[in-house]
Design a binder for these strands. Structure first.
Length: 194
DNA sequence: GTCGAGATTATCT
DNA sequence: GATAATCTCGACC
């Protein structure tokens, strides 16, 4: 992993992560969907209201892991980017398990198909065996490994699931690989029809 | 297949 | 005490 790469703004790092392989231990995931968070500039970010204990690692060195607890039962994982002192990160939304499938499956007993193993931020974290204690870990150090690949086709669109009135919802800060089975299907952001 | 509601707890005000 | 970068399940088409 080239640490320099992650000193760039989240909007530049996000497309680079698409198609990259992220590993923890025996499980490797090919990242298919991500979302950019721009810290202080981004009303939807945890860092919008300043530095707190939880988001402290977002202000730290690029290339580290930021984990947080949400909705009482789920953990999400981000890759910290932008230079130290700037709170910015890319949320890992979905991926395809390409190695250690058996282990990932044993962690996600409810997943019926292999494409469901890491389809969604909290699911990806579970499949990889990441937990809160991994927050702040260096993705260049074992048991983690991050391999960037050739740039792949990327599509962008509005973010999903971010609360707050219009908290950046109209910005295309979500990136995914078109046609991937593992891209999260949730909240397609269409008006209610009846 | 899509839609809507509820679960459950660390962290912040 | 309120909030939350989500998931699962049940109802319906």
């Amino acid at each position: 992993m080239d640490r320099e790469l992650f000193a760039a703004p989240a909007l530049e790092v996000a497309p680079l992560l698409l198609g990259a392989h992220l590993s923890k231990g025996e499980v490797t995931v090919r990242i298919t969907e991500v979302e950019a968070y721009l810290g202080a500039l981004d009303p939807g970010s945890h860092a919008f209201r300043g530095r707190t204990r939880r988001n402290e690692v977002m202000f730290g060195e690029p290339g580290h892991l930021y984990t947080y607890f949400t909705y009482g039962m789920h953990v999400c994982a981000n890759v910290v980017c932008s230079p130290e002192g700037t709170a910015s990160a890319v949320l890992l939304r979905a991926g395809e398990v390409v190695e250690g499938v058996e282990l990932a499956r044993s962690r996600r007993m409810t997943a019926k198909r292999d494409t469901d193993l890491a389809r969604g931020p909290a699911r990806l974290v579970v499949a990889m065996g990441i937990d809160l204690a991994d927050g702040g870990a260096d993705l260049a150090e074992p048991p983690f490994r991050l391999e960037l690949h050739e740039p792949v086709a990327a599509e962008t669109g509005p973010r999903t699931g971010v609360s707050g009135d219009g908290g950046g919802l109209d910005f295309p800060w979500r990136f995914w690989i078109p046609g991937e089975e593992t891209v999260s299907p949730y909240k397609p952001h269409v008006p209610k029809r009846r």
